[in-house]
Design a binder for these strands. Structure first.
Lengths: 145, 145
DNA sequence: AAAACACCCTGTTCCTACTTCAGGGTCAAG
DNA sequence: CTTGACCCTGAAGTAGGAACAGGGTGTTTT
């Protein structure tokens, strides 16, 4: 199949496929006489694997690692477990951080329900006061992450 | 104060300050005879405001909007409310998406507790099978977001 | 046959919010 | 007079592609 069909079947864009090839994630296919890329079902499986890992939030280096490990079935799979553990940890910390963030935003939003002018807007005053350094620990907290 | 001290007091890097100035977020300070930037407490307040908004997950365009609104205290503050509402919505959706992601990762991780080889690794097989299209809705789901 | 249209190619630039680097100037201390 | 800490500008790099420029190919329609 040609790149357009692979893109449709792999639910991604043509540019993304060429990008993966350039990055060495997707095996380079043979070319037709006219220079068009000619893909097989194996390429589709590879692409789906990559897209699935991406949908799980993995970065390209992690996926590269998995692809390399795939070709060495005799090795211990500890490395795969570690990789997943670190992914889980990363996602978990993101969630924790975002939950705190949502609370802060809701609290801020709650300070202005009435229709008023910017000069009287409690939200903006809260933002400015927090910026003055007192009473807002979130600033420094997020700084370190 | 010079840029190094502003950076220390604003808890960010010197480069970030110069970047904000180039982006028009932070007012350009006067220069000393030697060309060094000379900052005032007003600049520190501006920087803290920017950093605080950043720590709340806002992008530079949003912060630019707020900074512009600050200079028009007579306008209605509806726009500020809308801006915050959309921030909250964005963060909320991120959390929802990440929670689903964490569940998927944990489920995947749970399929391999034993020490085995990559050839037998249930995680990798799960990833490959999911990539084959059957039984994994998450792939297409994340695609649309 | 010519034109329109869909598809393909390479290569380059753009996006966020910075960080890092190259190459150099300034200033106080030892 | 040299060392080290600070400052300057401007360009390039980061992740993961998206978008565009400029051109070739293949089928269909006129």
């Amino acid at each position: 199949m040609k790149i357009g069909e692979l893109a449709k079947r792999g639910i991604c864009s043509v540019e993304t496929i060429r990008f993966y090839e350039k990055e060495g994630l997707l095996e380079a296919p043979t070319r037709n006489d006219n220079g068009y890329r000619q893909y097989t079902n194996s390429h589709l499986a590879q692409l789906n694997f990559i897209r699935h890992c991406r949908s799980l939030g993995m970065g390209l280096p992690e996926i590269r690692t998995l692809r390399t490990l795939q070709t060495h079935p005799e090795l211990a799979c500890d490395e795969i477990n570690h990789l997943l553990d670190s992914q889980i940890e990363r996602v978990h910390q993101q969630i924790t951080s975002l939950r705190l963030l949502e609370q802060q935003l809701r609290s801020l939003r709650g300070s202005c329900h009435a229709n008023t002018t910017i000069g009287n807007c409690a939200i903006l005053r809260n933002l400015e006061q927090a910026a003055d350094g007192e009473g807002c620990p979130c600033h420094a907290v997020h700084e370190k992450s």
